[in-house]
Design a protein around this nucleic acid. Structure first.
Length: 465
RNA sequence: GCUCGUAUAGUGUAGUGGCCCAUCAUAAAGGACUCUCAUUCCUUUGACCCGGGUUCAAAUCCCGGUACGAGCACCA
């Protein structure tokens, strides 16, 4: 990374607060957050909430997102900036632009302007006088013009090789009567709103942002903004890009798609463990540190990549195994009545690597136990207890041969329970007997021979193996 | 179509001209430990997109091709 030593670097993460954060947003938070921490800089969380029509913000996100950022990083963002609070600043810069002559009010429709863009020719509005532009600007502000009638454009050069850069739009009008901004103190206050490229560029400068790390889909944004910075005489921040990330098991994910699926009842909410949202991952027992390690390991390359969920899970396993108490969960249980001498109790370690954590004392009075139906064929050894022969006959307390070791649970120490398995699109429910315990909801346990699970109100939610 | 970008083992990643018959992680296979198909540890398999060029020397620089991706919105 360049220029990090020169001064205190300033990074920013700038989502649209139009819903909860997704797995993909986590990358922006983790990468920017980690760099800012490593270089003793600061992290700005900025809400780019300047669209009230196409991707309208959601009020709850303003509180939720800072919490999610804090959960993920283990510390809050150093500064929070809300674009909709900063409209006067943007207006001021727009006016500077018009007065200095590097911006103009364009009254062409989007379609008409596309013609000019494609044919590399100047739009007639481009040559208007400053007075004319200011008068049109005021007509935008006071609502004489309506959405679609006029936009403010940045003068670049209509013959630029890259069509995306040709006199790009900086501010436009929105019907905030029909579509008011959800923040009550903003509401229908403004009719003219900056577009991302303008708002973000101006705000980055005002906040002293030194490094921008973002998706490569915004590469042309950088170029547009650089042209604006040249007009203003500012220096553009150092910029680094990352490519697209797909997770094998999830495919593409978009906020709007998820919203629709939640509304029609396919998912229980944004925190449904099947969803690639931060809340969903949290509900699924993914640790913030695992998520951080995952994104840091992927690094910041411009390649488009596709990763299996197993990579994230392996990071998570490293975080949780040491702490996860062991429990038995017997799927599709078969009852077995033990024959022969049985002790009153059998002690099984809570965690095999930490004997100090103690034992789970399993009562064998009555000597009725459950084992998984799949394990009920032939000889087996009950883990930490005894070799069992035909008809539940106890053959030996010591291990006498290589018969498979299986997990089990006594009638006394188990209760009916369900194992919830989020599997791609669907959720599988497996009935069984869970070892009795008094761990709190939210505790991460390891179900022996099955995998890690988190205790929920409804049952044991299987996280991963 | 135009513009921009990327191309290293199955999946990710390191590597900015010689320390590279290429790093690490993960996955897979085998083994040790373990009364879990967990954890930990060891071993093995496995890659520089293709073709030219520059150079004593190229994964690394240049050109062409191919593949993939992004932008060309009065969305972010």
């Amino acid at each position: 990374m360049k220029n990090v030593d020169a001064k205190k670097p300033v990074f920013r993460f700038a989502p649209n607060p139009n819903g909860p954060l997704s797995f993909g947003h986590a990358r922006g938070i983790v990468i920017n957050g980690t760099y800012s921490k490593e270089h003793e800089g600061i992290l700005i969380l900025r809400f780019d909430d300047t669209d009230t029509t196409v991707k309208p913000p959601e009020l709850s996100a303003y509180d939720l997102i800072p919490e999610e950022v804090e959960w993920l990083l283990g510390r809050p963002a150093d500064r929070i900036v809300v674009a909709s609070d900063r409209i006067p600043e943007y207006y001021q810069h727009a006016e500077t632009m018009l007065k200095e002559g590097f911006g103009y009010v364009c009254k062409c429709s989007a379609e008409v302007f596309r013609e000019y863009r494609e044919s590399k020719s100047n739009c007639p509005c481009r040559d208007k006088s400053v007075e004319n532009n200011m008068s049109d600007w005021n007509k935008m502000l006071d609502g004489t013009y309506k959405p679609g009638d006029a936009v403010v454009r940045v003068k670049t050069d209509m013959t630029l090789k890259n069509p995306a850069l040709r006199d790009w739009p900086a501010l436009r009008m929105q019907d905030t009567e029909t579509n008011p901004h959800p923040r009550p103190n903003i509401g229908s206050k403004y009719k003219v709103w900056p577009l991302l490229d303008f708002q973000s560029a101006v705000e980055d400068h005002l906040q002293g942002v030194t490094h921008i790390i973002r998706g490569k889909d915004l590469m042309d944004s950088t170029r547009k903004q650089t042209l604006l910075y040249e007009h203003f005489g500012w220096t553009y921040p150092e910029t680094i890009y990352w490519g697209r990330v797909k997770v094998h098991e999830w495919g593409g994910f978009s906020t709007s798609k998820m919203r629709a699926s939640i509304e029609n009842g396919e998912y229980s909410g944004w925190d449904d463990p099947r969803l690639p949202t931060i809340q969903g991952l949290k509900a699924r027992g993914i640790q913030p540190e695992a998520l951080r390690n995952f994104w840091i390991e992927l690094g910041v390359t411009q390649k488009d990549i596709s990763v299996p969920l197993a990579t994230l899970f392996s990071h998570n396993t490293k975080m949780i195994d040491d702490e996860a108490p062991r429990l038995s969960f017997v799927r599709n249980p078969t009852e077995v009545l033990l024959q022969g001498q049985t002790p009153e109790f059998v002690g099984i370690p809570i965690h095999p690597n930490h004997p100090k954590k103690g034992l789970r004392n399993i009562s064998l009075n009555p000597p009725t136990i459950f084992i998984e139906s799949e394990d009920a064929n032939g000889l087996y050894r009950l883990k930490e207890f005894a070799d069992i022969g035909e008809h539940g006959n106890i053959e030996s307390i010591d291990r006498s041969d290589k018969r498979p070791i299986i997990h089990w649970m006594s009638l006394t120490n188990s209760v009916e329970a369900v194992l919830i398995i989020p599997d791609q699109e669907e959720i599988k429910i497996v009935n069984g007997r869970a070892e009795s315990n008094d761990y709190e909801i939210g505790t991460i346990v390891q179900l022996e021979r099955i995998g890690y699970a988190i205790i929920t109100e409804d049952g044991y939610l299987l996280m991963h193996e």
